[in-house]
Structure formats: C-alpha cells, structure tokens
Design a protein around this nucleic acid. Sequence first.
DNA 1: AACAGTAGCGGAGACTATCTCCACTTAGTA
DNA 2: TACTAAGTGGAGATAGTCTCCGCTACTGTT
Lengths: 182, 182
Amino acid sequence: MRADAQRNRDRIVEVAREVFRDHGYDASLDLVAKTAGVGAGTLYRHFPTRENLLDAIMQSWVDRVQETTEKVLAFEGEPRDLLVRWLEAYAELISLHKGGPAKLTAAMGNPQSPIAHKCGVLAGATQQVVDRLRAEDALREDVDAVRVCQLVGGVATVADNADQPVAQVRPLLEVVADGLLR
Amino acid sequence: MRADAQRNRDRIVEVAREVFRDHGYDASLDLVAKTAGVGAGTLYRHFPTRENLLDAIMQSWVDRVQETTEKVLAFEGEPRDLLVRWLEAYAELISLHKGGPAKLTAAMGNPQSPIAHKCGVLAGATQQVVDRLRAEDALREDVDAVRVCQLVGGVATVADNADQPVAQVRPLLEVVADGLLR
DNA sequence: AACAGTAGCGGAGACTATCTCCACTTAGTA
DNA sequence: TACTAAGTGGAGATAGTCTCCGCTACTGTT
C-alpha cells in the first residue's frame, strides 16, 4: 500500500473511534470521512462496509481480550468459581462498546461476518474453560462452548439494550453458571 | 374518526403486518403505504412513528399471548416441567416477529416505551409462574420475574439475531431453567 | 532531476428512506 | 343540495449510503 494511502487509512480509523464514541455506532460515515478530512470515496474504498471499519477499530479490543483471557485461564480453583469468573469477563469484554454484545454474538455464529475472526480468541478461551470443566466432570453433558457463548451473549445483549451496566447482570450470570454445571 | 379514515387505518395495520413479516421490522414505511394504497402522509398521520405502527400490529399478538398464558398456567405437574414449558412459550411468543425478542425485552424494562403496556400480560404471567414455583419452594431465592424475563429474552434475542428458529434453543432454555431452580 | 505509469483521491450525484406540507377531495350534516 | 372541516396523497425537503470517474500526486526508473 502506498504511504499516503496508509496514512489516510490510519487517520480514518482513529477519527472513527472518536466519532463512534461521541455519536454512537450509527454515526454517519460521511461525517467520519469529513472529520478525517478525506472524501467519502476514500473511506469506502478502505472500508467497504461499516462492519469493516468497526473491525479495524476493534484491533485494540482483541489485544485486551487476549490479556483478560490469559488472566482468567491462569486461575486455579473451584470449577464454579472459574466459570463465573469467565462468564463475567466474557460479558464485560463484549460490552465494551454499545451494540457490541448483539454484534459479537451474532458474528460468533456466522463465519461470513467480517468480524468473525476477531471472536476467535473469545471462542478459543471459552473452549478452554469448557475443556477444563469437562475434565473435572463438572459440566452438563449437553453443553458446549457455543452454547456458553450464546447464553452469556444473550444476557449481555439484554443489559446493553436496556442501557444497564454489565456489572448489574452478575446475578443472571450466576444463574447461567449453575444451570451449566452438573 | 371518519369512516374512511378508520378504513384506511385498519388497512394500513393489516398490510403492515404482512410487510413486516415478509421484509422484517426494517421494511420501508413508504412501501407499507404504497401496498396499502394510501399516501405516505396518511400513514404518518395515523402512525407518527414506526413504533406506533408496531404497537397497533401487536394487538392481535396480545390476544395470542393471553391464550397461551392461560394454557401454560393451567398445567399441573412438576415445577421443572412448568418452568420449561413457560420458558419455551415465552421465547416463542416474543419471537413471532423478526427483531421481536430484542424490542420486547428492551421494552420490558422501559416503561416509556410505546409498547411497554403490551408486555404487561407476559410480565404478569411470568410473575404467576414465579409465584407458583416460589410457593413450592422450587426457585432460587435471588430470582424474580424480571430476571426470568431477561434470561429468556437474552436467549431468544441470540437465536433471532442468528436467524435460528426458536425451537433450536430449547437446550439453552433447559440450562436456564436448571439454573433458576434450587 | 525529470519523467511515466498508476495507485489513490475527492466529491458530485444516484439511490433510498424518512417525514412534512398543503392543495385537493369527500364524508357527514343540516 | 350545499357546506365545511376532516382526511387524503404525493411531490419534495432532508439525510444517509455508496459509486463513479476525472484528476492528483506518489513511487520507481532513468
């Protein structure tokens, strides 16, 4: 990629992050372009869809997921504790942006989605948690990582839609955790 | 209201129901107007916002909720059976329209919403189920009707976002049910 | 340093959806 | 039948998405 194109790309991502934070994820993309000082065509060439742009913005989010994941997986203790910790971490991670829970949970089950691969870390970590609980025979038989993600995703989506802070759904996550365990 | 205005109103509601079913909740309102054979102005005078129109459409939905509710509440059997039946009925009822789970679950916690009062029947029925389980001391202490609604709403929302049929989330509802019970 | 070739740019404008305005039509009434 | 105000419809204002293409200027070559 040419140097000036790279500069524009970076600038668009940087500006978009601010615009989306200030105006919500529905903000006009033309506004993003104008604020970044580029034409609409330039924005759309770099990011054909809104999702592609979100994808780029989320790169820093992926780093954060990685970090949190390692922390939780390092935990050695009761299965229920591990599970609750993971569910909470998961809910928090997907709720960092308004609209995140719904978007990420939908992307999780749809490999076509441009942000699907960003979810890989989350899916992988959930799988690891499931494996550990399975090894200790603490989990229901009919449960897999996908279902865990769906359940937490659902709870987080509800909180997000109601403009509630994620912290407030802890009791729901405990219910989910107890339902997941034997 | 003048007779012709009433006719137009009824026709718009009838047509909108079909259009929304076929094209999703985001269908163009101008399309609804055109299909109903009225001008956009007529539609917007009767229903200033999209939500107002949805509200009108949902009247028949309320009737259906009432009916289903009575059926489930008439069930006499094991607490877990009752709960699972209700969770399934609930999920199905809020999933009748694409986008319904998210909209209804959000409205459930927001009394300002134009469709909030439509949820009264659902909330009431859930409360009745909770009361019965509570009487039999089958429910966790920290659980109330609101939380039950949030959990099922979340699961249904995930299914809806992923374009899965509601029937497919039965296992998730069982997990939720087991988590809710003592 | 000058040049050529092309990657990349910008923004006008096509397209679509929402919603308003007001000249015109028609139901209800006397 | 004639009056009047409730009701209508659809053109057009406004706003967002996305494309097209003539022009600009970056980069590698000489």
